[in-house]
Nucleic acid binder design. Structure first.
Lengths: 232, 232
DNA sequence: GCTTCAAAATGACTTTTATCATATATTTGA
DNA sequence: TCAAATATATGATAAAAGTCATTTTGAAGC
């Protein structure tokens, strides 16, 4: 049995689409939603499907990915607490463009499509938040496109290690607080698994990162930024 | 002196953000906007800038691109009549993520930021249209990411020739109704200019396309679809 | 219609990255 | 804890794509 999660909690998370909604609105959403859990590895949404609602993630980490020609995953982005899944498809009235799979045990709230649209109609602020969110992600997607098109595999790997650190943070020992296989990293970078393995070894030998099995620690962020040619 | 363009015209173009707005709203927008022209080659918006309004394109063709490390353009998408420029940046309150340059003489209407937000506030329909638009583009961006990450240059070139045909259509002789240099095509595909030149020659020798200088004609769309591994 | 300049085409060569094979290490679950 | 499965590591090789140099063609301006 799930402990119900109050929408007030999620509305205060950074970047939440529910940010700034008044208590009455949040209470109303609370009544329309149901709480669900997903086990590590469980598929939450399938590319091509027509979702009947959106998920608001409360705990856990999720990868969003499309499947290429040979069935190879291309990870588009990660989803963590406070983020929505499925809203793109519902709002553009198109099939889901990316599958979602839990990277660890995940708790989320399910808001049916009709309720979701009701919140939009009743709360211009929510609608504006969603606009801001999707426009922000559009910018991020543009950056990813430019990286993939113009940077080398090594540059992209360094860039993604930095993105992982920003997105998931570090544990007490300084290791990235996300567990990904080399294959998953390759599926983000857009390269072969072996190439990622080789380059991670190289970065480790250079002392810029540490790695113990799946665990990766960024030792020298500015070196990675230099390798990635990120000037921000 | 520009002939003023009525917003009713653009609101009827396919995919217009102004679709479905009532006449009063459109009249009001007409009063807030100014008409501007851009010459072929002219830069309309600069990456990194803070736009003070959006452009609604009435006539012409525009490329949106980001600049990579070496100053190389990466074309993200094209903009044609009925499309908006600059809305992403204004809505996410971030600097412009892509520069815009006119590929041919272009006519557009400029709507100041404050007016743009007023239209959003007064017309939930407009706000919803923008949401739909940005979410659709987010899906397209995801597809582009997967292509860049997983497909070969030849596959991507074939794909983009098909996209160009869909976006710009053909003239009386069947040639694509858009004039791009090989370099610009390379900047879409994410490859070197010489590679595009070689592959275009190859596709021509195979009879799948014709090309006379810059003009390109798709002879065999299904062959291109097969090369691009597009199964839609 | 020339002339000039830029774009396209092509060849030779290099670099990057992918693929395949195999060995080693790390998880996972019984 | 140990065995089996999975993931990581590394080498050898092949394929893809990039770079540089040069020629040919086409477009734009006079």
């Amino acid at each position: 049995m799930e402990t119900p999660i109050r929408c007030q909690f999620c509305s205060h998370l950074p970047g939440s689409a529910f940010h700034g909604l008044n208590n009455d609105a949040l209470e109303e959403i609370s009544h329309m939603k149901t709480c669900v859990s997903f086990r590590k590895g469980q598929v939450i949404m399938h590319e091509g499907a027509r979702p009947q609602g959106v998920y608001c993630v409360h705990r856990g980490k999720i990868k969003l990915y499309t499947l290429g020609t040979e069935g190879k995953e291309q990870i588009i982005r990660f989803v963590t607490k406070g983020d929505l899944i499925g809203y793109r498809s519902i709002l553009s009235d198109e099939p889901i463009s990316a599958s979602a799979t839990a990277l660890e045990d995940t708790h989320a709230c399910y808001i049916p499509k009709s309720s979701f649209f009701k919140v939009i109609e009743d709360n211009p602020k929510f609608s504006l938040n969603l606009l801001q969110l999707s426009c922000h992600e559009l910018g991020e997607a543009g950056k990813m496109i430019t990286s993939l098109a113009q940077k080398s595999v090594k540059e992209r790997l360094a860039e993604i290690l930095l993105i992982l650190r920003t997105t998931f943070g570090e544990d007490e020992e300084g290791y990235l607080d996300i567990s990904l296989t080399r294959e998953e990293i390759a599926n983000m970078v857009g390269t072969a698994t072996e190439s990622v393995i080789r380059l991670i070894s190289e970065l480790r030998k250079d002392g810029f990162i540490d790695s113990k099995g799946k665990r990766i620690k960024v030792n020298d962020g500015s070196a990675l930024r230099e390798i990635a040619s990120v000037f921000e």
